[in-house]
Design a protein around this nucleic acid. Structure first.
Lengths: 191, 191
DNA sequence: GATTACATGTAAGTTGTTACATGATTAA
DNA sequence: TTAATCATGTAACAACTTACATGTAATC
């Protein structure tokens, strides 16, 4: 036990806090609603689990960054709807205006391809084909989301949502191109 | 405390193990060598910290998937060089031939852009410009790595490394295009 | 009558990073 | 002589997932 262990270790940025605050600027939501919204919208670049959401919700309540707007109780069913507070929007804005940390992305498919020499061309092609299918599925979904955003009434969020969506579209298309090209390269190499 | 907590919870896939095994198929390496090689090669799609590498190295020794090939001792300096065992290559191959888990990628920049409506156009453009600079830096590095691989003698790894590199190049270019386009969109929206 | 969706929450784990300690060697 | 690089390792934490418990309400 040395000195360094006594002094406080650098606080980690709990991003779940800001994801929740951000979503509450769109509409008041329950914990369940937050999880569903994440899975329907930002899931392609961000995800959260219930084990993160519910405890964070209580933390935010304690810090007065959100408040319980409504507590529905039909029979024994409980439903908590939260709203962001003024202090909450201030904290969110502070974080939004802060430089993003360098994002560390981990891609298991690429890792397996990198070590392809220790396996076989056949297996590597299989990984690429699985990836290809996944991208094609995502692409279809992106198009659906795009229509949904474009047909809804104008909101200050729309421009930002379309930008994020466009990132998904462009990246997916590029990745797809790479898949096709790489499958071809490996197949030619086989002969 | 219920039954579910007594029965073993599903084992997690320790991917650090396979990263190390994979790198040892390229050459015998020390812990330090492994860390350096990761930072010079696969860092764009995979990273590991010393806190993961050294304990895993001892785990792999215990499981006999690697062996201590050489123990250099000049003065008091210690240096452990590890080699992969036959059993190690078998385990690696097993993992390589297994479907990759769906990769969850978390992108803080996109998250901040998604909530841009709670901040300002100016701040959102700033995030995009930071991203743009980062990609441009990466692109330069990709070109350097590409030359390095292409000028070195032919090895069974080359084709796979070039495929991974090409993913970096294609993705980076697509992302850069998106950055430029999005900056323009937001700037036009300002007026 | 069974399944799915709605709804909240936690225990127990795994995974991963950070910030050090320790000390040798090499280059400016 | 100072700084950087080489080299191994760990304590303390933060972050995150999984697999449940425990219900209600709606729908097929």
């Amino acid at each position: 036990m040395s000195f360094r262990h006594i002094i406080a270790i650098m606080k980690k940025r709990n991003k779940t806090k800001f994801v929740i605050l951000g979503l509450l600027t769109i509409a008041p939501l329950s914990g369940y609603g937050i999880k569903s919204l994440i899975d329907k919208s930002i899931t392609y670049f961000w995800s959260e689990s219930n084990g993160q959401i519910y405890p964070t919700l209580n933390l935010l309540l304690k810090e007065k960054l959100i408040i319980l707007k409504e507590r529905q109780s039909v029979g024994k069913k409980i439903r908590n709807i939260y709203t962001i507070t003024k202090q909450g929007t201030i904290e969110l804005k502070k974080w939004l205006n802060t430089l993003a940390e360098k994002n560390i992305h981990r891609d298991e498919t690429l890792l397996k391809l990198f070590f392809g020499g220790a396996s076989s061309i056949k297996e590597s092609i299989k990984h690429l084909q699985t990836r290809k299918k996944e991208i094609e599925k995502n692409l279809k979904n992106y198009h659906l989301i795009q229509k949904m955003i474009q047909t809804q009434e104008d909101s200050p969020h729309n421009i930002y949502w379309l930008i994020c969506l466009r990132n998904g579209l462009i990246s997916a298309k590029a990745d797809l191109k790479w898949c096709k090209e790489s499958i071809k390269t490996l197949e030619e190499h086989k002969q």
